[in-house]
Design a protein around this nucleic acid. Structure first.
Lengths: 248, 248
DNA sequence: GCTGGATTTGGTGTATACAATAAATAGCAT
DNA sequence: ATGCTATTTATTGTATACACCAAATCCAGC
């Protein structure tokens, strides 16, 4: 089965992904697609924290060479979704409790601070779009696709931030949300999902009526609720702490 | 001259940089050093906005191959200090007026929001360190090294954010500050520097006495003052706007 | 003399080959 | 039998070669 050595001139037709690519994508878009694929897989916990990401394996799967994979891994590392240890390669980041606190504090500061601006720029079209996103999220939740729901919830928060009109802060929120998804995947209870069913809809309501302060307060409670739902136990796997176990 | 093809076992002794390296740096640190060198050069405006950064040239200067340079350029691109256009290569980012507004709004939100935390964690040692930084900045300013002063000022703000204890937000501030330096370099008046002489010292005073709210308000004014000192004229160089010039 | 197209050239995009290192394993000695 | 050391192996780090695209140049035609 190892037919990987055949050096065809053109880049290999990349054995069908999950969706059929238009083939000769500009290569740049191809990278973007691969980046999204890996990123989504991490966020949806199909790749679990700690999982090693070998360059050869990824290169093989996506049909490009290690060069491109490395580029993507470095980007993911800068976003702190993967950890790059010097000569050990890449692995999915396992967020610590401290990091989790930092991330949620940061969200508290930024997302809440953005609400007044969002309320000001909120129009009918935007509200409709957000409602549709919230609907999809509820649906995913109902059909038991928890991981997908987590990602859709993150998408919702990011879109919200984008509506503030500040691209820089929106980008920050994007990074915070993907890290949050990772945190939820690790510390969240399996049955109990982060964003409660109707929170997002309620939020849209406040924003639609231009009530920025109300939305801000609600967002604050919303985020606090998510954070509170986490069970912050760091199970260490390496070094099973013999000292403590045997009462050193 | 072109003795580069000689495949010596060790990596080439890298023809002395500007400072003599300890030679066999771990390679990782070498990359970091190069990254800093380029980043500083941009922030200090020795590399002006729009300047092209050819991979070959950089590889030649730093004595590593294009592979490493590309990695560094990609990192700088993610931090938005350089712009990477698909087949044209890298160039120093020329911030637009919109971006400048976003960056300063973001700083307003984040840095001000951090002040109470900083005030809470402020000790004698931290205050002394900050005062020393402020001193260096003043000195650079006095000796006419405006670019250096801009960088030192950015360093000050970053250190402040780090003292909040939130590493994630500190990293955001770091990025905002380097972009701000770029903005100052483009839109700032030559003679009139951003951070007024004693602002930073005053700020340390408020923080030292644990007066977080006061520090917050002061920081807000401080940032507003910097932003107000900019002359937001975008001189377009490409397409000299014939329509407008000849009253289309 | 100027415009339009073909050719050349400079520079990036990608793959691959090779070197180096850390982990795993096996062998040896105690 | 166990612990230490040497060899092997698996995987990353780096450089370089080659392909490809875009812009600049040059030539021809009008």
């Amino acid at each position: 089965m190892s037919d990987t050595q055949a050096p065809e001139k053109r880049r290999a037709p990349v054995k069908e992904g999950k969706e059929s690519k238009k083939e000769s994508k500009e290569g740049d878009e191809r990278h973007e697609a691969i980046y999204r694929a890996v990123s989504d897989a991490i966020v949806e916990q199909r790749l679990k924290p700690g999982a090693r990401l070998r360059e050869d394996a990824l290169a093989d799967v996506f049909g490009i060479s290690r060069t491109g994979i490395r580029k993507i891994l470095q980007r993911l590392a800068l976003e702190q979704l993967v950890t790059l240890t010097p000569r050990r390669g890449a692995s999915v980041t396992r967020p610590t409790a401290d990091e989790a606190k930092d991330v949620f504090d940061a969200r508290q500061l930024i997302e809440c601070g953005l609400m007044p601006d969002v309320a000001r720029r909120m129009g009918e079209k935007e509200a409709a779009e957000l409602r549709e996103m919230a609907r999809q999220e509820r649906q995913a939740l109902r059909s038991g696709q928890q991981s997908v729901a987590i990602r859709l919830s993150a998408d919702f928060h990011v879109r919200l931030a984008q509506l503030s009109g500040n691209a820089t802060l929106a980008e920050f929120v994007e990074r915070l949300c993907s890290r949050s998804s990772l945190i939820l995947a690790v510390y969240g209870h399996p049955g109990h999902l982060g964003c409660e069913s109707h929170d997002h809809d309620d939020l849209i309501g406040y924003l639609e009526t231009g009530n920025g302060e109300r939305a801000k307060a609600f967002m604050s409670r919303h985020l606090k609720a998510i954070e509170a739902s986490l069970s912050m136990v760091e199970e260490e796997e390496s070094a099973p702490d013999l000292q403590q176990i045997f009462g050193g």
